Computed example of a mutant assay.
Amino acid sequence: MYASQVHDYLRTFFTETNCEIVSDEGFQLTVQLTIDMDKKIMNRPFYWQYIEATDSEPNPTRLMLITDRTRIQNQFVGEVIHFGSGRLNQIFKATKELGSFVQMYEDVAGTDNQTTLTPYFCVNYKVSYYCDQTKEKIHSLGINLINGDIEDNFHESICNLNLQSNIPEKAFCLQYIIKPSRALERLDMMIQNIITQDDHSWAEEAKNRWEKELEVLNYFYKDTEEKPEVYEIEKKGLEERFNPRIKVEIINGGIFYLK
């Protein structure tokens, strides 16, 4: 997820959650949080307990988020946010809680004739590659519920469309042929195929680092016939640290009726 994608995601997130965007410079975003959003992403439970207990005037946080550190001279004036950062993970979590599934319709205002809208089923996946290092990727997959065509980067393809939660006037929505449950199965198969075809040299490199660390550990205990308990603990710790593993999570999804 590139800096520009993170920036677009944040802009959309804060707009949809009714937070005022004070300034947007393309690489730096200043946002005035609402009370609800401050509670969700700022980790200030004691502050809000005090405000509510004393009936004091609340002061939600104003965030200055830097999405591209290469374009700013003084990085201490705001919070650098990037894919994998704690703050962005909090926002992902809030997104999941607020809108795990949506149903949206493309706006057809300005058209004189009835417009046919086609249903698409979208799932946003987070794929995490774990070892002693961590790498995460976002895959947004969308499937046409009429013909079954699957599109990668689906979110990017619709982020500039005008979408609304109600069926527009002069719009006719096609009834889907592929059921959402079946669509989810096909997208799950697709994400597994993407993972299979991905470069997994990171796992082999992690295994090599694991073996080198194990050699060092064994060296310190080479003269010990019966290995102590601490040896087994350290050995198990190395295994847990370097063992390659992959985790797939669904962030959110929805049905989108598009022209």
Rank of each mutant, 00 (worst) to 15 (best):
N153G: 08
I177K: 10
I138M: 05
K236D: 14
H155L: 13
N166R: 15
V216C: 01
E185Q: 13
N218G: 03
G237M: 14
D152A: 15
K170D: 06
L141S: 00
E232N: 14
Q197F: 09
K227V: 01
L214R: 09
Y231A: 06
I194P: 04
P228T: 07
L238N: 08
K137N: 07
K247A: 04
P228V: 14
E151V: 13
S157L: 04
R182W: 11
D199E: 07
D188T: 05
K179P: 07
E169C: 05
C173D: 03
G148A: 07
P180C: 03
N243V: 10
S157R: 15
K236A: 14
Q192T: 10
I177Q: 10
K235E: 13
L214S: 11
D188F: 10
L184Q: 11
N153L: 04
R209G: 00
Q164V: 14
F220S: 09
L214M: 15
L161C: 11
V248H: 00
A206L: 07
E156L: 06
A171R: 02
P180L: 02
R182V: 12
Y219D: 12
N193F: 13
L238W: 01
N166C: 05
F154R: 02
F154E: 03
P228Y: 05
D188E: 12
W202R: 01
A183S: 06
E211D: 14
P168V: 05
T196Y: 08
A206R: 01
M189I: 15
L174F: 06
E232Q: 09
E151N: 15
A171E: 05
I194Y: 15
E136K: 00
K247V: 05
D223H: 07
I191Q: 00
D223T: 06
S165D: 12
K207A: 11
E226F: 09
F220N: 14
L238F: 01
T224E: 10
P168F: 00
F242N: 04
D188Q: 12
V230S: 13
A171T: 08
H139M: 05
S181H: 10
N144P: 09
I138K: 00
K170N: 13
N147D: 09
H139R: 02
N243S: 12
S181E: 14
E156F: 14
I138T: 03
I146F: 09
E185P: 09
A203G: 09
E249Y: 03
N153F: 11
N162I: 06
K235R: 15
N147R: 11
E232V: 09
S201N: 12
E234D: 11
